[in-house]
Simulated scan of single mutants.
Amino acid sequence: MAICDMCGNDYPRSMTITIGGEKNSGGVFDSFECAIAALAPRCGHCRCRIIGHGVESGCNIFCCAHCARAAGHDGLVDQAGHTDGGSGQWKVFDDSREGVVE
């Protein structure tokens, strides 16, 4: 068993995460919750944890383009808009039937 670097729990199904393949860059965690708390960067404006890709400007990372603009980083957008040929409506993905053979 391995001990979680975040909470200290000794857990038999812990995971080791590395960042960029660099040795000693991540840690050992008993859950994704602990890994996120320890490793996810914070938005340069609102300070929330960035769990997705985020947006980057220079050496800064933000949770969304709105926060980047609020911090003075112009030119970033969250969506391309209708000019890209999209309908402007969200596509809903239904994976509840994934792998079902009829």
Score class of each variant (00 low, 15 high):
residue 82 H to L: 12
residue 83 T to A: 08
residue 68 A to R: 00
residue 96 S to F: 13
residue 76 L to Y: 00
residue 82 H to F: 02
residue 84 D to W: 07
residue 85 G to T: 06
residue 84 D to E: 11
residue 93 F to I: 15
residue 71 A to C: 09
residue 70 A to R: 11
residue 86 G to N: 07
residue 94 D to S: 11
residue 73 H to D: 01
residue 81 G to W: 02
residue 95 D to P: 06
residue 75 G to Y: 02
residue 74 D to L: 00
residue 79 Q to E: 11
residue 91 K to C: 13
residue 99 G to S: 13
residue 97 R to S: 15
residue 79 Q to G: 13
residue 82 H to M: 06
residue 75 G to R: 09
residue 75 G to C: 09
residue 87 S to N: 09
residue 72 G to P: 04
residue 71 A to W: 03
residue 76 L to R: 02
residue 100 V to W: 15
residue 83 T to E: 08
residue 92 V to T: 10
residue 82 H to D: 03
residue 88 G to K: 09
residue 100 V to H: 14
residue 74 D to A: 02
residue 84 D to I: 09
residue 79 Q to Y: 04
residue 90 W to Q: 14
residue 73 H to N: 10
residue 94 D to V: 12
residue 77 V to T: 05
residue 95 D to K: 15
residue 96 S to R: 15
residue 75 G to E: 05
residue 100 V to I: 15
residue 79 Q to I: 05
residue 96 S to Q: 13
residue 94 D to H: 12
residue 74 D to W: 00
residue 76 L to M: 07
residue 69 R to Y: 00
residue 69 R to H: 04
residue 67 C to W: 00
residue 70 A to E: 12
residue 72 G to H: 01
residue 82 H to T: 06
residue 86 G to A: 06
residue 70 A to P: 02
residue 74 D to K: 00
residue 89 Q to N: 11
residue 90 W to G: 14
residue 69 R to S: 07
residue 84 D to Q: 08
residue 78 D to F: 01
residue 99 G to M: 11
residue 93 F to C: 12
residue 86 G to T: 07
residue 67 C to N: 08
residue 90 W to K: 13
residue 88 G to W: 05
residue 90 W to I: 15
residue 70 A to Y: 01
residue 87 S to V: 06
residue 76 L to G: 01
residue 81 G to P: 04
residue 67 C to A: 10
residue 96 S to G: 12
residue 92 V to D: 03
residue 95 D to I: 14
residue 79 Q to R: 10
residue 98 E to K: 14
residue 82 H to E: 08
residue 74 D to T: 00
residue 93 F to W: 08
residue 93 F to A: 14
residue 89 Q to H: 12
residue 99 G to C: 09
